[in-house]
Design a protein around this nucleic acid. Sequence first.
DNA 1: CGCGATCTTGAACACGGTCAACTGACGTGG
DNA 2: CCACGTCAGTTGACCGTGTTCAAGATCGCG
Lengths: 240, 240
Amino acid sequence: MNRPLGICLSCAMNPVCHSEGTQPGLRPAVERRRRLARGEKLFEAGSPGPSVFAVRAGFLKVCMAQGGGAPRIVRFLLPGDVAGLDVLGGRVHATEAEALEDSEVCDIPAARLAMLADLRPSIAAHLRRLFAAELAEAQAHGAGVAGLAAPQRVAGFLLDMGRRWTARGYSGRRFRLPMGRREIGNHLGLTMETVSRILSGFRARGWILATPGGVALESIESLQAVSRDGATWRKAGTHA
Amino acid sequence: MNRPLGICLSCAMNPVCHSEGTQPGLRPAVERRRRLARGEKLFEAGSPGPSVFAVRAGFLKVCMAQGGGAPRIVRFLLPGDVAGLDVLGGRVHATEAEALEDSEVCDIPAARLAMLADLRPSIAAHLRRLFAAELAEAQAHGAGVAGLAAPQRVAGFLLDMGRRWTARGYSGRRFRLPMGRREIGNHLGLTMETVSRILSGFRARGWILATPGGVALESIESLQAVSRDGATWRKAGTHA
DNA sequence: CGCGATCTTGAACACGGTCAACTGACGTGG
DNA sequence: CCACGTCAGTTGACCGTGTTCAAGATCGCG
């Protein structure tokens, strides 16, 4: 019996959990819960025991190593996000995930998830939806890093985080940012210093309020303007 | 009846085509073939008539628009590649695809592909594999654009194209490059001029031979060295 | 209180972008 | 046949954004 409490309601794996019990004798999708301390790795690239994970609480980062460069943070995981979908395509993970703060995840063995998908077309369709969404997100992120100036990327990052929190029923204007400046920069293809400077700029204009480990978006409109048009930034900066 | 000729043998949709006939009364996966003239669009973002496409011949680019920036080329499609998988997750395409030269594709209606996947677990598993591969590729590309210097990206791009041609049974050392410098730059997050300069540099060192619309990789080792370690470039450039 | 890590800020530099001129291939028309 | 226009590519010179290097500020924590 699953308990759709709190974050479970907006969890990407919710439909999968809800399928339990419809096939008597079938084991539940979630093998077990797992607690992670800050800094602990959920899985590593090429790790055994392939599972997909749903984040119940906490905050994780997903990293990918690349020949000839430092590992890059591919995405951040919020409660309700799914990690390690790529393991459904092969035997091992292409990425690794690490907790940025104490977290809790649901461990869903890949084999069991695949079996469920084969038994229930609705779950197969849901998995396709998750894949497609993550693919589009990854492509959009790559396009942003390739084509946008630094302030646009930072503004877009803040807005995107807000959107994701909103989708979970939390405030999209005030939320925690448990990752460091260095990690934001790593994710956005910038240095820690550049991120810090741009956030300082936003703060100086009164667009955000930065508290240690969190932000408040005071002027979402201004951030949207910057994220759309880099020129807004230069103009605003000139007379400020 | 399908004819696994030429590129079909290494086509990502091959297992799907081969599933035909096993379910009498089921229509073949491929609705029809479609020819595209250079510059013609295969599908647009948000377009109706959702289909997945397998490239039989030619060369395509997949683009994604982004608020506040020019559209970016997300990937290039070679014969045997699959385009538009993301439509399996929703109703519309998140990207658009355009032929860089006269091309031919197999049109596989999304609904039919989903049905096939529900009937045959092996096809469902294959789709998951395709999704996972494309996701990993997109993430790796984003990580590269975020973390690598321009020469590393260009070298990596050439090597990656070679790898993909090799996987199809063609030479990974000499192949066509039907896209323009501008399009390579767009894909890599660089300008046309930077791409041109770097290719000139490679050519001056005898690492590549650039012919109009094609390249020959003369020293894959050197290119690999640059793609792994940007410093190789500066050192080599100093004494040249 | 003092140490360390994280963040902020400053100054100089370099990579890649921008602007511009030139080349060569190709196609058209005089 | 050559003049001409166009367009992609190449190359050069300059400049701006973001990096690098370095010095403080801030905060948590023993």
